[in-house]
């Protein structure tokens, strides 16, 4: 019976620790960061002898928004298309395996190497310069396998007989996918895109050499560099004590975004029956 008791202790301790970590990180950041958050912090540019001592993070918020949205568009559309292709169109397992191998390989590329790629190929070889588009391309490649896997999983969970019923009525694949499959998983797709967006928003490495900068205004086009929240946080931390307050504030904003997005994604991801 000792075995049983030890296992039980292990289980409760593990669960407690995991929840403890989650709660600790969020409470810590929210408690420490709350003091820095006010309208000025959210709506003004960083200032001060050491950047970030005064002012706010408005350009970084807008920059992150630009990076993330561009990445979700660039990565999300091919991800959904690939998932539909694998599940509904591809008829040969061998071809499916090739696609899977490539996706697997891409998912294995560390994000820093993707940043490297975007820098060498887009910024330098194609000479589009350091800009949002270059970073977002790297982010898009990073989140594409992530979104694809989620969408593919939800497509596979559609009851097979429902699809067969549509085929059996003489309706084509295109019509079936468009009118049955995609509406059926619409919420899961939204959820996958939100989580993919979170993933992109929090990633720093792909921005370092490509389109993320320490200071700039609010970006007007995708062809100029911009500030981003995670990069800003990294630089504030690297500067040390003078800008620590702003660092807590920046972390606060990011954690709030994560919390809200995750709540939304969970809400959407839950299978809800059509009423």
């Amino acid at each position: 019976m000792l075995k049983a008791r030890l296992t039980k202790m292990w289980a409760y301790a593990g669960m407690g620790l995991v929840l403890g970590i989650v709660i600790f990180i969020f409470i810590y950041i929210f408690a420490k960061g709350a003091g820095s958050i006010d309208l000025e912090f959210l709506l003004e540019s960083p200032r001060g002898a050491v950047l970030g001592m005064e002012g706010g993070i408005f350009p970084a918020i807008m920059g992150s928004l630009a990076f993330t949205l561009t990445a979700v568009v660039l990565g999300g559309i091919p991800a959904v298309a690939t998932a539909v292709y694998i599940v509904f169109i591809c008829k040969r397992s061998s071809f499916e395996n090739i696609i899977r191998g490539v996706l697997q390989c891409i998912a294995g590329i560390p994000s820093i190497v993707l940043g490297l790629f975007a820098y060498s190929f887009l910024v330098r070889d194609l000479a589009i310069g350091r800009c949002i588009l270059a970073s977002s391309a790297a982010l898009a490649v990073m989140i594409m396998p992530f979104i694809e896997a989620r969408v593919e999983k939800s497509l596979r969970e559609i009851p097979q007989q429902m699809l067969s019923s549509s085929y059996a009525l003489g309706c084509s694949r295109g019509y079936t996918v468009f009118h049955i499959a995609l509406p059926y998983v619409r919420q899961e797709i939204i959820s996958a895109l939100i989580l993919g967006g979170c993933f992109a928003m929090g990633a720093t490495p792909p921005l370092i050499f490509t389109g993320g900068v320490a200071f700039s205004g609010v970006p007007q086009t995708l062809l100029e560099p911009a500030m981003a929240l995670p990069l800003h946080l990294y630089l504030l931390v690297a500067q040390g004590t003078p800008s620590l307050g702003a660092a807590y504030g920046t972390a606060f904003v990011m954690m709030a975004v994560i919390l809200i997005s995750n709540a939304l994604a969970t809400f959407y991801g839950r299978r809800r029956r059509w009423k």
Partner: peptide
């Protein structure tokens, strides 16, 4: 295929109405 399946209808084991 489409034409053939229009002329030969099929109903499956578990009732599978579309979610509309």
């Amino acid at each position: 295929g489409d034409e053939l399946r229009r002329r030969i209808g099929m109903v499956f084991q578990t009732p599978s109405p579309f979610p509309f």
